[in-house]
Write a protein that binds this DNA or RNA. Structure first.
Lengths: 197, 197
DNA sequence: ATGGATGTATGATCTCGGTCATATGGCTAT
DNA sequence: ATAGCCATATGACCGAGATCATACATCCAT
């Protein structure tokens, strides 16, 4: 089972990169969608605005995440992509991607595998979020993220990001982690959490 | 833009159907995944159990919905599929599906489109769930689901299912809907919610 | 070095929403 | 027709967790 990212898969379709200042838009709703992107650095989020002007955040992409993969099959973008931090993205030409898929059954299978892995992990995240108790949610999340051998979780990003993943206030997460450590259920180091079953 | 279901896409890979009594399992976690399914009739849900034995409902599939599409590239199923009602499902042979994808770039593109749509809707659900306030969560959910022309949401399934999607107690959702209606922000009919902005 | 921004951390307070209880209407099976 | 089940609906209560406030450390840019 190969675990290629979108970028690795379609390296040949890459047409360069782009730097975005904080607050800059990568693209906006309605623009012709000619490229797909992956975030190399920083943080870009997809936003749609309701008729009342309220923003709806559809997705927040961090380093390694794809952007607008779904617009491969649409002529225009249907959200805005805004850099929340200074960011860099890699650009991939849609036409070339389609050509690659048409020419290589292997690549197209790998691409489908890529998406279905993503579906799995998104469902897993949804599963975590359907747990009511914040404490249980944290425990379940840690279990999911932990490498099975050593029951160790490497935290990518900040605890605040993790709190967002877990759909809870970051203060709550700090408290819960502190409690779990006090109880001896976990131990912590910078960027690492170890679970003691 | 075609919105083929998995079933329509891979009709040739179909190997028949299966009837399930209420409570019967279509497959269970860990079993070799040889087939994918779509629900023809009834209702099948995907469940995982936590270490404490609590069930977590990952997904509820009704007529027309696919089941376990994401396990196309995994050797075993990752959760249990249980019929909540007497149900019938169509079965599709994984090997044949892979063969079809290899042989037809068109089908493989359609398949990729299918998965990327799914990724997008899962992401949308995740973002909805990251909204703290239950009331705002409901509003955003309705906005996302609403057809842009007429701002009308067709409810598939029950309000309880919707409450599960929204990760809140169904009582809370009943109350919030009643309030929104009282305030004139929405109006309701059986199976339909209309948003007045 | 200094000020600003951000992440980490913890205490105090208060409210939102989860839980429990109860009621009613619709549907199915006997 | 009757009993049982489920979705819908609403009231009452209370506790988990959101919010607000404060403090300290780190990292940048000036």
């Amino acid at each position: 089972m190969n675990h290629l990212s979108f970028g690795e898969l379609f390296e040949e379709a890459r047409t360069g990169g782009k730097s975005l200042a904080q607050g800059e838009f990568l693209f906006q709703k309605g623009a012709a969608s000619t490229h797909l992107y992956t975030v190399l650095e920083g943080c870009v989020r997809m936003v749609r605005f309701t008729s009342t002007g309220d923003p709806i955040i559809m997705h927040t992409a961090r380093s390694g995440d794809g952007l607008a993969e779904a617009s491969l099959f649409f002529d225009t973008y249907h959200c805005d992509a805004e850099a929340v931090l200074p960011s860099t993205v890699a650009c991939y030409d849609k036409k070339r991607i389609v050509a690659i898929i048409g020419a290589s059954p292997q690549k197209s299978l790998a691409c489908i595998a890529f998406f279905s892995r993503q579906v799995r992990s998104l469902r897993a995240l949804l599963e975590v979020r359907s747990i009511r108790s914040a404490r249980d949610r944290v425990l379940h999340y840690l279990m999911l993220q932990a490498a099975p051998e050593n029951m160790t979780v490497r935290i990518s990003g900040s605890i605040k990001d993790m709190a967002h993943d877990l759909a809870m206030a970051h203060e709550t997460l700090y408290r819960i982690l502190a409690n779990l450590e006090k109880e001896g259920k976990i131990s912590r180091d910078i960027g690492i959490i170890k679970i003691h079953h």
